[in-house]
Every structure is written in structure tokens, then in C-alpha cells.
């Protein structure tokens, strides 16, 4: 096959996959949020409520976070990041089962179901983060970020981490229900470890090294560096985070392929 016809074939396949993901996305929005009350606005109103609630709680309890940062800014960056990486796996585990019947359409594959849900989840978390940021900045609770691009970089890396983890767990969950049983406790236990509630700089020096072994911590630090610039000292290991994302992605794709092969539409 010539390179040109190969390219044509790939772009045709990409167009089909794009269509399928879009169709699944619209279907998912309707089945999840329906047409009642505010409908699909729940996509980001729900995470906004979460984040606002946590912000209020942390403000009231004068949470100790080891820096002079305003608690609002701290809670917003921290909790939004948690929502980003934690909700994606939760949505991908068990995503295949309710959509099994759709696999009768040859072009609908397991990965499309995952990608549609990931886009929705990441989209919701992002809109929530941006809207709340703008709102807090507008009412003066928050200074605009020092370096928006760094915030975006950290955010995208966190999203990538969450997405690859989600696909891996989603695919593995098709093989063993243990994944679902273990993810719930695991996601709760990693929450306090994820960097949402602390700055690495506030940890004892001996503990900082170990904190950075947790991939999400690096991402959250990056987001905060973008937000607060020189007001805080951040610690992160970018190559390590990238390595984690790439490794997880490769594992996830391999596992999704296995699921594709073994799938039995009801």
C-alpha cells in the first residue's frame, strides 16, 4: 500500500471513530442527565457544588495547609484536580456492560465507549474549574493565575493521567470485578495523599521525595505553580509524571484490545 492510500484509510477510520464517539457522547449526556430541570448543565454544576462545598468546609475549619495562601485558592486548585483524576476511573469502571448492546454496530468499540465518557468527565471537571476560577476572581476571592499556560500544562497532564488510569481500570474491570471493589477504597485513601490538601514544600524534607512518587502530586504542584507563581515553592518531577502517563496509556491500550477481542454482546 502506498503512503497516500494508507493515509486516506487512516483518515477515513478516524472520521468514523470521531462520529461514533460524538454519537456516544450525545447519548451519554441524555441518558445521564436527561431533559429534566437543568439537564446537561449538571455536567459541571455537580462538580462545582462539590468544589464549593469543600471550599466552604475548609474555610470554616481553618484547614492547615502549611502556607500563607488563601484557603479558597488552595481548595479550588486542590479539589478540582481530585475531581479530574478520580471521576474518570469511576465512570470507566463498568462502562462496557450497559453499552454492550451497542457493540452490535460494528464500528462501536470498547475504546469509543471509554473515550466518550472520558471526554464528558474531563469536560465537566474543566468547565467547573474554569467557571469557579472566573467567578472567584470576579468577586475578589482569588487573584488571576500568574501563568495560565503552566496551569493548562498541569491540568492536561492530570487529565492524561486520569484518562489512562481510567481506561486501564475500566478494561481490567471487565475481566475481574475485584477492580471495582478495590477502586472505591483506593480512591478514598489516595485522596489525602494526592496533594489536594497539602503543598509538598510543607512536608518534612525526608517525606517530600516519597510524596513525589505519587503521580497526581506532581500534577497538582504544577497547577499550583501556574496559579501562584513565586508565592509558593513547588516541587515536581515532570519526566516521572510523563513516564507514568505513557506507561499507563500503553498498558491501557493493550488491555482495551483484549476486551475488544473477548467482548460478547448480549
Amino acid at each position: 500500500m502506498t503512503t497516500f492510500s494508507q493515509l486516506a484509510a487512516i483518515s477515513r477510520s478516524a472520521a468514523i471513530q470521531g462520529r461514533v464517539i460524538y454519537a456516544l457522547l450525545m447519548r451519554e449526556i441524555l441518558t445521564r442527565y436527561g431533559r429534566h430541570n437543568i439537564g446537561f448543565l449538571w455536567l459541571f454544576v455537580e462538580p462545582m457544588l462539590f468544589t464549593t462545598g469543600v471550599t466552604i468546609l475548609w474555610t470554616l475549619s481553618q484547614s492547615v495547609h502549611g502556607s500563607s495562601l488563601p484557603i479558597v485558592a488552595f481548595a479550588l486548585t486542590g479539589y478540582s484536580s481530585v475531581l479530574l483524576w478520580r471521576n474518570m476511573p469511576a465512570r470507566c469502571i463498568g462502562a462496557i456492560e450497559p453499552n454492550l448492546a451497542l457493540m452490535y454496530h460494528r464500528n462501536v468499540k470498547a475504546i469509543d465507549v471509554f473515550l466518550a465518557r472520558l471526554l464528558l468527565e474531563a469536560g465537566g471537571a474543566t468547565i467547573s474549574f474554569v467557571t469557579l476560577s472566573l467567578f472567584y476572581i470576579y468577586i475578589g476571592w482569588l487573584e488571576p493565575p500568574e501563568d495560565v499556560l503552566t496551569v493548562v500544562e498541569g491540568w492536561l497532564l492530570l487529565a492524561w493521567f486520569g484518562a489512562s488510569l481510567a481506561m486501564l481500570l475500566g478494561a481490567l474491570a471487565e475481566r475481574s470485578e475485584l477492580i471495582e471493589r478495590f477502586w472505591h477504597p483506593a480512591s478514598y485513601i489516595t485522596f489525602p495523599l494526592s496533594g489536594a490538601g497539602f503543598l509538598v514544600d510543607a512536608l518534612p524534607t525526608s517525606a517530600q521525595k516519597y510524596a513525589l512518587y505519587i503521580p497526581m502530586v506532581n500534577g497538582v504542584e504544577l497547577v499550583r505553580e501556574g496559579y501562584f507563581g513565586n508565592q509558593i515553592r513547588t516541587h515536581y518531577d515532570l519526566p516521572y509524571l510523563l513516564g507514568c502517563c505513557i506507561a499507563l496509556t500503553l498498558l491501557a491500550l493493550a488491555q482495551v484490545n483484549v476486551v475488544n477481542r473477548e467482548i460478547t454482546p448480549e
Binding site: R27, L30, T31, L102, Y104
Partner: peptide, 22 residues
Amino acid sequence: AFGGAFQGALTGFDNVRFISRI
């Protein structure tokens, strides 16, 4: 005529729309 792919919460039109998109 396979009806298994119908999602109960979706309307008839929604299902037509889904297939049309795919």
C-alpha cells in the same frame, strides 16, 4: 430489528438520531 440497543430513558427520536450519527 434488534431492539436491545434501546436505552429506556431515550426517546424514539433519540435512538434514530444516535443511529444516524453513527
